[in-house]
Amino acid sequence: MSLSTNRLTLRRVTADDAPHLLAYLSKPEVVRHMGLDPFTSLEDSLEEIAWYDSILEEGTGVRWGITLTGQDEVIGSCGFLNVSAKHQRAEIGFELSSDHWGRGIAGEALRAVIRHGFTQLRFHRIEALVEPANTASQQLLERVGFTREGLLRGYEFTRGKYDDLYMYSLLETDSMT
């Protein structure tokens, strides 16, 4: 299943997209706040794609590759993870190649995925976890209507350290901008 906006097509990521993922996930500025080391090989990209496939198969998430309409190159991804059907909630995550920052692409993709989450997947709540130093993602989330709820101290252990994360949420009853 794919999603479309004025400028974007969000689609399933396949093994053929591994070189595209490597191109942007190898950039330190892109992965800096993702709890990942920069990718160094196609194998890293294929493992990421395998994770996308596994969360879809398990019903715990879905991840779409972001492409510019009419082009096939994946320039980022956006989707849900940690889906709780019982509680009708999920966590949203996203990243975009730094070559495309500052053009409104991440916001456009985020709005499409959120809309799908509320209308098709019937979520009541969508959460986002963001490192305190990641001000760009915080600002983007706030622009589309998310509310910062608080700081989760030592919430994740990544790359040999515990990370604090801000919890953001958007409810289906909130107005999305």
Rank of each mutant, 00 (worst) to 15 (best):
S98A: 13
L25S: 07
R32Q: 11
E156R: 15
D164S: 08
G93I: 02
H20Q: 07
G104R: 07
M167W: 08
L36R: 11
E127R: 07
H33L: 01
Q71L: 06
F157C: 13
L151F: 05
S45W: 00
E29T: 11
L3V: 07
F80G: 00
H100F: 15
L96T: 11
V113Q: 00
N6A: 14
A85D: 10
L36Y: 09
S175F: 08
L96P: 06
T119L: 13
N82T: 09
V62A: 05
L141D: 02
Y52K: 08
G160W: 01
H33M: 09
A90D: 00
L56S: 10
R111F: 01
L151V: 09
A112D: 02
L8R: 01
K27V: 10
T5A: 05
G154C: 10
N134Q: 05
Q139Y: 03
V83R: 04
G70F: 02
G93L: 04
E57V: 13
T173E: 13
D99F: 07
G145D: 05
M167C: 14
L36P: 02
F80Q: 01
S54E: 13
M34A: 11
H100C: 02
Y155M: 11
L8M: 07
T69I: 01
G160P: 03
R148P: 04
S97D: 12
A50C: 09
Q139R: 15
R89M: 12
C78E: 02
E73S: 12
L170F: 03
D163R: 15
P38S: 09
V83K: 05
A106V: 10
L25A: 12
F94R: 03
D163M: 13
L46W: 00
G102N: 06
D44I: 09
R63I: 15
R103Q: 15
G76N: 05
E47P: 00
L129V: 08
L42G: 12
I75H: 02
E149M: 08
R122P: 00
D174H: 14
E131V: 11
A128P: 04
V31I: 10
V144D: 02
E108S: 13
G70I: 04
E172V: 11
M167V: 14
T147L: 02
R7I: 12
V130S: 05
P28N: 09
I55E: 01
V13A: 04
L3P: 04
